[in-house]
Design a protein around this nucleic acid. Structure first.
Lengths: 132, 132
DNA sequence: CCACACTATGTGCAGTTTGTCAATAGCCAA
DNA sequence: TTGGCTATTGACAAACTGCACATAGTGTGG
């Protein structure tokens, strides 16, 4: 690895995609601006999210009617800001997401468990030569 | 939901992408044919994977030198089969994947925990009307 | 022998998702 | 008016996905 990772995607390649559920959860807590959400994503270990991705996700969720947005009347420094607010539908979706995430966690646990067991037993290691 | 889910993606939208790590783990156990791997993915809850996706993933991993393939001399029913074999590099990648998965699991746990706590406290529910 | 079913793998394409980069828009200070 | 900070958006290419279909060999019934 590292040495010849010329095939590296720009970044990413995470196992999980938790942006949407994290946003829904934050909004379940309270309505918020995109920028605020962006900052609070750090709590979920998503502090490295690209702003564009976050705003895009929010617009997408609005299209799907999981959230609604209104323009903030209070004007702070900067352009008009949207306030995103969870809908009842978004609430349901969040519940579904959590179920999915539970399933995902089980799968991860299974895989991780299998990996560890395998390592402890010292089996495997069916390598061939590395092509480099 | 349900009622107006016309925006539904064909399927998918799973939180996790575990195909590659699962394949690597299976190959860490022992070399195998694509078809065999395809069948054994069920163990990891990936029984619904599309064959194309699996073969494509294997070719991709070979390009990245995580695995190598050779033609199986033994001829069973059907066309010549490839035997995939983990490389030392693939072994490293698998280790990295597991680290990533551990991180992912922590994130999931955090999110799930936050969700439950929030539910128990009965806060939130900052809904607006559903746009439907 | 020929058609056909079954095993196993691979390709092509269209639609979707993602990351990166750059643009816009308003306020404020110099 | 230039430049900096706060917010939000758009455009584009690369990557990914699902689906339909092509190929290739082997065994089987007629």
């Amino acid at each position: 690895m590292r040495g010849q990772g010329h095939r590296r995607r720009r970044r990413g390649r995470r196992a999980v995609r938790m942006l949407e559920p994290a946003l829904l959860l934050l909004l379940h807590h309270a309505p918020a601006h995109g920028y605020t959400l962006l900052e609070r994503l750090g709590e979920f270990g998503l502090g490295d999210m690209n702003p564009s991705a976050v705003y895009r996700a929010l617009r997408g969720m609005e299209e799907k009617a999981w959230v609604t947005s209104t323009w903030d009347k209070e004007q702070a420094q900067g352009p008009p800001r949207r306030v995103y607010r969870l809908t009842a539908q978004g609430d349901e979706v969040l519940a579904l997401w959590t179920q999915d995430l539970e399933g995902s966690r089980e799968k991860i646990d299974y895989l991780l468990g299998a990996y560890r067991r395998h390592m402890e037993e010292g089996e495997g290691e069916h390598h061939s030569k590395t092509a480099g």
